[in-house]
Amino acid sequence: MSRGRRQALLAAVLLAGLGVAAVALAAPPSGIVHVPGGSKISRRQLGAGLFAANCASCHGPMGEGVERANNRGAGATTAQGPSLRGVGELAPDFYLRTGRMPLNHAGEEPERQRPFFNSREIAALSSYVASFGGGPKVPDPHPDFGSPAEGLSLFTEHCAGCHQVVGEGGYVPGAKVPVLQHANATEIAEAVRTGPFLMPKFPKSQIGEEDLNKIVAYVLASRHPDDEGGLGIGHLGPVPEGVVAWLVAGFALTGVCVLIGSRLKR
């Protein structure tokens, strides 16, 4: 290879590298790719495009899941991810509308944030994922038909062990338990049926449709507790209440002691 040809090759490689970098920089910082074309392309095309661009690298090109990451060649799967066959529209609708997907790193706990896609994109992705192998539809709960009082006892039985009795969340071995105060009725029902991350799912044989309405009604009602005692103190239960009692009572008692002591001196 002559010296001139070698230099030309080097320049070409450099240029190609710069081009790749430019493309990478042009993409949104979150790494989310929105399919151009907007409302002109069909829902199915939109779903397929969004899936290929944002989901397939972990869930596999046909939603079959990735057991072992493979970085080589076209259609590279860069990280591990579970299979999406049989999850239906329900799970993708939940994960996308609560901003829990896409994840930054496989295996990390999905957390609620602003959704990355608009509602048309979410609907397109959900129906595209459902086309991999059927599965449940997005549930349609009716909290107006459910009694919050009965919901409280069901919530205590099934949910409060992790989510705390007014849905303030907490910690369990292996996961941070999400707060329920921002979820709407559909999202609550979806979470019950699909069991996101480490939560078990609750099929209809465990929590029937009527009971689910009651639970949703209770969670929505629990956002505005009566606070009969005055301050809610974060609705976190007896521990902060005890701390407040000790602090207030402690200062009051100390004050009384100081008062008695000063009178005795005089």
């Binding site: 057991e67 591990q80 991810g81 579970p82 496989a106 295996g107 369990v172 071995p173 292996g174 996961a175 069991g195 996101p196 991350f197 480490l198 939560m199 078990p200 799912k201």
Partner: peptide, 11 residues
């Protein structure tokens, strides 16, 4: 009951 959705990467 802790039920991982993706056993390969979760507890």
């Amino acid at each position: 009951y802790r039920d991982p959705k993706f056993a390969a990467a979760e507890p």
